[in-house]
Every structure is written in C-alpha cells, then in structure tokens.
Amino acid sequence: MAFLKNYIKEVFSAVRSSLKGMGLTGYYALHHKKEKITQQYPDNRDELILPERFRGEVVMLHDENNEHACTGCTACELACPNATIKIITKFDITPEGKKKKALDTFVYHLELCTMCNLCIEACPTDAIKMAQTFEHSVFDRNKLTKVLNKPGSKIKEGIE
C-alpha cells in the first residue's frame, strides 16, 4: 500500500513540476514583447544600452587639467596575466630638488587583453578603468597598441 501511495505521489509531483515549468515558458511566450532582452545591434547603435559591468577596453582617466592619477607603480603590469600592459617610468625633479619616479608612457596592447579586470583591481590609485567601447576592429594590428596617458599629461597633486 505504501508503494502505491508513493507511486501516486510521484506521478502527481511530476505533473505539478512539469506544469510549473511550462507555466514559466508559457508566460514568456505570451509576454515576449515585454520580456525580450535582445539588443538589435547595429540597428540600435544610437540607443544601445550596455549592462553596467560590461568591459570593453582599459582607459586612463584624465581630468580637465590633463592630469591623471597614475604613479607608475607598475602594480597593473604585475597583475596582468598576459603582459598586456607595459609601463615606462621616468624620474621627475620635485621642487625640493629630489628625484621622484613618475609615469612616462602607459603602453596597452588591446590585442592581448582579455578584459579580465585584474589591472583595475590592482591599481592603488584608481587611475585606470574599464570603458564600454567595443567596436575595436581596425585594418592594421599596430593600431591596437595604445598609449593610454595623453601627451603632456602629468600626475595630479597629492597622489603618492
């Protein structure tokens, strides 16, 4: 008798869970206009909304005075798993006459980058971040090697 009871219980739970699943897909089928998440790129290039956490390429932030926050500490270069970043440093002379290490060129190889976000997490001064641009195709791969600090830019005051 216990066997029969279990059997009937199994059949009913199977029917119930099947109906539950079909209810969800049925809801989607009926409300596909409202629920749809497909972005019809490139038709909607102008109003394209990317998710917040989408990662396109590494950029360096510059403020209106052409100043960035990079100290040239090479933490990002060490963090990068596939040698995408190469930092060339120079020595600035401070007003007190001391030598101080500073960023000269921030070389970024986009063609090697996997957008893993480790460099951004490693940066102690939040100088770099991930941009959401993603249309990277070019006809010459040399164009993928980028210099991130703008010409003539220097480090912000007060960042060590």
Partner: peptide, 10 residues
C-alpha cells in the same frame, strides 16, 4: 519563433 519567444529572444 516559438522557441525564440519562450527563451525571450526575437
């Protein structure tokens, strides 16, 4: 079409 609708696609 039905599969797309059920998977919230176009």
């Amino acid at each position: 079409k039905v599969s797309a609708w059920m998977q919230v696609r176009l």
